[in-house]
């Protein structure tokens, strides 16, 4: 579906712009300017307000980024369980730093706060799917699934 159709399918939902943004992002991995402008028109709000919504929430990105979004939890329980090591391993494995995307457009690396899977820390998510108890040794195997 093209982004206009996706946004249009939420037009009847009061306050549905956030749902629409989620739906577009699951296809494009970020929210391009035209998407924000289109959503503003469909939900009948100024473009500035639609941009305000897109930029407020940490799961939305207004900049292009890699297709598979890797998020590393840095909240206190994951922090003491060794999240920093996981960060290093991911950066090494992908050859990029936190906040960047790989040149082939396959991966984006981001920090997140707690994702509510704290029974087995540290935790990362890839496209929302949680991986528990991760460490430097398990990272390559996890990434292989997305390559």
């Amino acid at each position: 579906m093209d982004y206009k159709e996706i946004i249009a399918s939420y037009a009847d939902k009061p306050g549905g712009i956030i749902e629409a943004f989620h739906a577009v992002q699951s296809q494009l991995s970020y929210l391009p300017r035209e998407v924000i402008a289109e959503a503003a028109q469909v939900f009948n709000i100024p473009v500035s307000e639609a941009y305000g919504v897109a930029s407020f929430y940490s799961m939305f990105s207004t900049e292009p980024r890699g297709k598979n979004i890797i998020r590393i939890c840095e909240s206190a329980p994951c922090h003491v369980a060794g999240a920093a090591e996981v960060v290093q391993a991911l950066e090494r494995e992908l050859g990029i730093f936190m906040g960047e995307s790989t040149a082939d457009g396959l991966f984006a690396l981001e920090f997140t706060e707690c994702v509510g899977q704290c029974q087995a820390t540290p935790v990362i998510t890839i496209n929302g799917e949680p991986y528990l108890d991760v460490n430097a040794a398990t990272i390559p195997g996890i990434l292989a699934k997305y390559r």
Binding site: G15, F56, Y57, S58, M59, T112
Partner: peptide, 24 residues
């Protein structure tokens, strides 16, 4: 309705703003 990664949206009036489609 789905949130989009904002801790403050747990505060009830911010949550309401978010359901209404605004910044939380």
């Amino acid at each position: 309705r789905s949130g989009a990664g904002a801790y403050v949206c747990g505060e009830e009036t911010a949550l309401i703003e978010s359901i209404e489609g605004s910044r939380g």
